[in-house]
Structure formats: C-alpha cells, structure tokens
C-alpha cells in the first residue's frame, strides 16, 4: 500500500524536509552538470577563464596596490602571491553567493511547471564555483611555488575550508534567493555586497593593516576568518587564525539553519509570485 500524501494549506514555520531533498540528489547533480557544461560551451577559452580571472585580477592589484601604492603584503610572502591566493578564495565565495542568489529567479520556468524540492536550486547553484576553484587553486599553488613559497602540511585541510566557505555562501544564498523571488532588489544588492566585501576582507591587504580597535567588528565578516585560515594553510609563516576561525564556522551554521527555514517558508509562494 503506497503512502498517502496529504496537502493542506501551509501555516506558520515548518522544518525543511531534508528527506525529500536527499531523494532529489540526482537532480542537483544534473543541474550542476548543466551549469558547468553550459557556461564554458561556446566560449573561446573555455575553462581557462576560471584560471585567468583570478590571475589577471592579481596582476592588476599587484601592479597598482602592491607596486605603486605600496600596500604591504602579509605572512611573509611576496605581494603577488598574497593577492592571488586572496583573489582565488574571494572569487570562489562571491560567485557561489551570486549564483545561489540568482538561482531561483533564473529557474522560474521550472518552478511554475513542476514540483521538486526548491532548495535543490540554490544548492546546485553554489557547486559550479567550487568546481572552478580547483584549477584556480592549482594555478595559484604553481605561482606560489615559483616564488619559492612552499606550503606547510596543513594545505591538506584546504578541502575542509572550501566546504565551510561553501556553507557560508549557501546560507547567504538561501536567504537572498528566497527574498529575490519577491523583491527583485536583491539582484542589485548582491553585486554591491561583493564590491564592498572586496574591501572589508583581507584579500589584497593583510589583516593587521586594520587597527586593533576595529578588528573585533571587522572580524565579524565571516570571510575574514576564512581568508586568514586559508593563508595559514598555504603559507609557512602565516599565523594560526585561532578564534577568528570560529566566526565562519558559527556563521555557516547559523546562516544555513535560518536560511533553510526561511527558504522553506518562502518557497510555498514561489510559483505564484515568481
């Protein structure tokens, strides 16, 4: 005897149905596959773009900030190495956040025509940047070695940090993608957030440039802890981030849980308002 599903008007807050989400993991896989193959199909330089983007940005920042403006480097590595690692991580995070935020509205055709756990959409959207991260990370590693900076053993923990970053991006993405369905302002907010984030995160300048008094507030940005931890994993002379690491871990947890609940509440109306 098959199960009977009862559909009644939804009221109040409901827990996200993780069981259903898991049942649709194959859909997430094919959505990721679609996005990855579409993005680089019919582009001249293909996957090279994922590598070129952080490289070119690092060159620009190295020339103008590192060389002309004499912005100091950190962790005892040459400025180009410092800026490149920052760029690789920041591009990964910002793209994951951007893709997740845009994902629901971009899938409006599907949402109106067929039911599936809507949360599959932002989840599938954050994964392609994680795939792009791999070649970018490897190139940055080659550059670092060319500058004679040998990574310490904790480089093996990079995948863990990549996952933590993904969780932060997904947590924010769940909130923004649900809001985006009703308030298209979000579309304008995200690029702005990314631009601001580039300045309030130690990407192209070291953490200790920020005055001690401002550091506690500065560190509330989860990406500060991520960047500091990332450099600790890559550069032998970078310090252990210590308590700074707690911020991204805690924000990932809080953002994911609240984001999933908010998304679950908002998704009911997706088909009607999107």
């Amino acid at each position: 005897m098959a199960d009977t599903r009862v559909i009644v008007p939804p009221r109040g807050w409901q827990a996200p149905n993780l069981r259903e989400l898991w049942d649709y993991r194959d859909l997430a896989f094919f959505l990721v596959k679609r996005d990855v193959s579409i993005r680089y199909r019919q582009t001249l330089i293909g996957t090279v773009w994922a590598i070129l983007q952080p490289l070119l940005l690092a060159v620009v920042f190295s020339v103008f900030l590192g060389h002309y403006a004499k912005v100091p480097s950190g962790a005892g590595v040459p400025y180009p190495v410092f800026a490149l690692t920052g760029m690789v991580m920041w591009l990964y995070f910002s793209q994951a956040m951007q893709f997740a935020s845009d994902s629901t509205v971009a899938s409006r055709e599907l949402i109106g025509k067929v039911w599936f756990p809507r949360m599959v959409i932002p989840i599938a959207a954050v994964l392609p940047p994680a795939i792009d991260f791999v070649p970018a990370f490897l190139i940055a590693l080659v550059v670092q070695l060319a500058y004679g900076v040998v990574p310490p053993v904790q480089i093996l923990l990079v995948p863990v940090l990549v996952v933590v970053t993904l969780m932060v991006a997904l947590g924010i993405g769940l909130w923004l993608s649900a809001l985006n369905v009703r308030y298209r302002d979000i579309r304008l907010v995200v690029p702005f957030l990314i631009m601001v984030g580039l300045f309030v995160t130690p990407i192209v300048y070291p953490f200790d440039v920020v005055p001690d008094a401002a550091q506690p507030i500065y560190a509330l940005n989860p990406m500060v802890g991520v960047l500091e931890t990332y450099r600790w994993m890559l550069f032998p002379d970078a310090g252990w981030p210590g308590a700074l690491l707690a911020i991204p871990l805690a924000s990932a947890a809080v953002l994911l849980v609240t984001g999933a609940w908010f998304f679950t509440r908002a998704e009911r109306d997706f088909a009607d308002v999107i």
């Binding site: 005897m1 098959a2 199960d3 009977t4 599903r5 009862v6 559909i7 009644v8 008007p9 939804p10 679609r34 193959s37 579409i38 199909r41 019919q42 055709e109 599907l110 949402i111 109106g112 025509k113 067929v114 039911w115 009911r268 109306d269 088909a271 009607d272």
Partner: peptide, 29 residues
C-alpha cells in the same frame, strides 16, 4: 506546484506531473 488556500488533498502513490513538453530542456545540451 502551488499550495491550496483552503481545503484538503489526499494523494496515494507517487505523483508525476506533465504540464508542458520539454520542462527543463536546455537548448545547448
């Protein structure tokens, strides 16, 4: 796809929906 405002629906068994032909088809694939 959309929740009811009032009333109740009971469905026994797995449900498939076909509201259009080619849902989710992507031209580049």
């Amino acid at each position: 796809i959309t929740p009811p405002t009032e009333g109740r629906i009971e469905l026994t068994g797995r449900v498939g929906t076909l509201l259009e032909v080619g849902t989710g088809f992507h031209p580049e694939l």
